[in-house]
Each structure stands twice: as structure tokens, then as C-alpha cells.
């Protein structure tokens, strides 16, 4: 073991880590919101080599009934790792670690959600780790909070998190799997950037007061950076919608008297859109429409195909 440890240089004296990052560098993060059709809200996060999928269902009816709370909604969080998510096959039954993370993630999300708005119901959060590479609980909490926002559940703030650790006496940000296993400490952290509340803080290894402070000083700006990415990902999903809504509201705001003036540009707009629509529709479909004049049945058969084509 000692020999192996010597082989992997976790961090050089000038502060370069084994994968080339500096002390306060985080891995590349990419969020994708709304990836699942059947879930009320969902989010896929790619954080370095981590791939984590979060799905939110609800608020919905809670069974068993004795778990219902008369004054607030229950946030039921389940963190699971796929058997193929780690190099050595993970046994499929939930183990101690998964149960622990499920619990702490649920507790981290709870302060962010206005749970009193939906009494007696449940908000189910399912987190599936497809590929794990260290810091998965922080990535999971980021993804889960986005999924909840995507489901339209009222929230105080998004939850952003990151981990810090100690490598050879140096405090670094965002440990990957190797660093986590061979380093001297791990400090997962999540907080609500707007209200500046810490919702998740665990510690593995020994941090001196100085190191702990140093870690926190790195974690807070990093979390804010991640928070910005989360917001961008969320707005990106809906950005097209927004532009259109703004158009609509503009029109509704103008009083009815000026309708005559307004109709002309509106017609142009609608024509344009109609043209666009025509372009999108395959010519074959038009031909079918004509044919359908003769045969009702023929049209009926093609209709599902048309639908598929549009999609």
C-alpha cells in the first residue's frame, strides 16, 4: 500500500494536482434540465466524470397515510448508485452509505422548499448515480434542487454545493475519486447562496481550524459560481418560452382601441409564423391532406405518422 501511495502524486509543491487542476479549480460542470418526459421535474448533471440523474415527482398524495404531516409536505429523497457506476460492481441493494446520503440530501433540500404550501402531500426526489467519480453527493444536491425547480415547486433558493479536501497538507477544492480515497480529508458542503444558509456540511478526516476556514473561503465562491450555472441552465430551458410570452404580454397591454393599428403587424407576424410552419411540414403531408378528401380512412391511417413526423 505504501508503495502505491508514493506512486500517485496527489499534489505537487507548486500546487498542481494529479489531473492538472490547480488548488481552487473545480471540474467542468454541465446541467441539463427537463430530460425526463414522465417526471414532473428532472435534471441531468455532468460534473467531471460524475453523471447523475435527478427526478422529481409531486407534490402528490402521500401513502402510507400515517406519514402525512398536517402542516407541510414531506420531502422524500432517495439516492441510489447504479451497479455499473463504480469500477467494482456495486451490489444493488441500498447500503449504509446510500441510505445516509439519501437522508442528508433530503435534509439539505428541505430548507429550500416551501413545504408548508402543500400540506399532507409528498415531494419525491429520486437521484440515480449513473457514473461516480467523487463528490457525487454535492453534484446530486445541485441536480436535485434544479429538478425541484423544474417541477414548479415553490422554493426559497436553489441549493448549490461543492466539496473541499486536504491533499498532503494543502486545502483543495472539488476532490475526485482518487483524491477522495487517498487524500487526508473531505468536506462536502452545500448552501443556499441567496440566503447564505449552510444546509449540508460533513467532514471526513481532520481539519485544523485554519484549514477549515481556508476550505470554507474556497467553497463559498465556488458554490456561487455553481449557482450561477444552475440558474443559467434553468433559464436556458425556458428562454425560448420567455421571448414568446413577452411578445404576448406586450400585445395584451395595448388597449383595445388601438386594435386597428395593431392588427397589421400582427397579421404579418402570423403570416411569417404560418410560413415557418409550412416549411416545417413535409410536402408529403400536404399531399395526404388532399388525398384525404377522397378517402377518410386513408387519412385516419396516416394521422399517427403525421404526428410522429412533427415530433
Amino acid at each position: 500500500m505504501a508503495k502505491e501511495k508514493e506512486k500517485t502524486v496527489l499534489i505537487t509543491k507548486d500546487g498542481t494536482r494529479h489531473d492538472g487542476r490547480k488548488k481552487e479549480d473545480i471540474r467542468e460542470i454541465k446541467f441539463e434540465v427537463g430530460v425526463l418526459d414522465r417526471a414532473d421535474g428532472s435534471c441531468l448533471i455532468n460534473w467531471g466524470r460524475n453523471k447523475i440523474l435527478a427526478a422529481v415527482y409531486g407534490p402528490r398524495e402521500l401513502h402510507p397515510k400515517h406519514m402525512q404531516m398536517p402542516d407541510k409536505a414531506l420531502i422524500r429523497c432517495e439516492y441510489r448508485m447504479a451497479t455499473f457506476s463504480v469500477p467494482e460492481r456495486k451490489r444493488p441493494a441500498p447500503n449504509r452509505r446510500e441510505r445516509e446520503i439519501s437522508k442528508i440530501l433530503g435534509e439539505a433540500l428541505k430548507p429550500a422548499v416551501f413545504d408548508y404550501l402543500y400540506p399532507r402531500s409528498v415531494i419525491d426526489v429520486f437521484i440515480e448515480v449513473i457514473q461516480a467519480d467523487g463528490g457525487s453527493r454535492c453534484a446530486a444536491v445541485c441536480a436535485a434542487s434544479l429538478a425541484i425547480a423544474d417541477a414548479g415547486v415553490p422554493m426559497k433558493d436553489l441549493v448549490a454545493g461543492c466539496a473541499a479536501g486536504i491533499l498532503d497538507g494543502q486545502v483543495v477544492l472539488d476532490l475526485d475519486d482518487v483524491e477522495d480515497k487517498e487524500g487526508d480529508g473531505d468536506l462536502p458542503f452545500a448552501y443556499l447562496p441567496h440566503t447564505e444558509e449552510v444546509v449540508l456540511l460533513q467532514s471526513d478526516g481532520i481539519f485544523s481550524q485554519k484549514e477549515y476556514k481556508e476550505a470554507l473561503d474556497m467553497l463559498i465562491p465556488a458554490s456561487k459560481k455553481i449557482y450561477q450555472m444552475q440558474r443559467d441552465a434553468l433559464t436556458n430551458r425556458y428562454s425560448r418560452i420567455t421571448e414568446k410570452v413577452i411578445e404576448t404580454l406586450d400585445k395584451e397591454k395595448t388597449p383595445a382601441k388601438s386594435k386597428e393599428k395593431k392588427t397589421e403587424p400582427a397579421k404579418k407576424d402570423s403570416k411569417k409564423k404560418a410560413d415557418d410552419k409550412k416549411d416545417k411540414e413535409p410536402a408529403a403531408e400536404k399531399a395526404e391532406k388532399k388525398k384525404s378528401g377522397k378517402r377518410i380512412l386513408g387519412k385516419k391511417k396516416t394521422s399517427p405518422k403525421e404526428k410522429a413526423e412533427k415530433k
Binding site: 411578445e247 404576448t248 400585445k251 409564423k273 404560418a274 391532406k289 384525404s292 378528401g293 377518410i296
Partner: peptide
């Protein structure tokens, strides 16, 4: 799909008109 666009009623009308026209004979 287009719940957020303006002049939607007109466009739906246009769309329906076109669809109905095409199959008037039967």
C-alpha cells in the same frame, strides 16, 4: 406548444380553416 405566442387565436383559426377546407368534399 405555442401557449406563449401572440395572436394565437387567429393562428388556430387559420390552421383549422385550412384543415377543414382540405377535406370539405366528403
Amino acid at each position: 406548444r405555442e401557449a406563449h405566442t401572440s395572436g394565437l387565436t387567429d393562428r388556430v383559426k387559420e390552421f383549422l380553416e385550412e384543415m377543414v377546407k382540405d377535406r370539405k368534399p366528403p
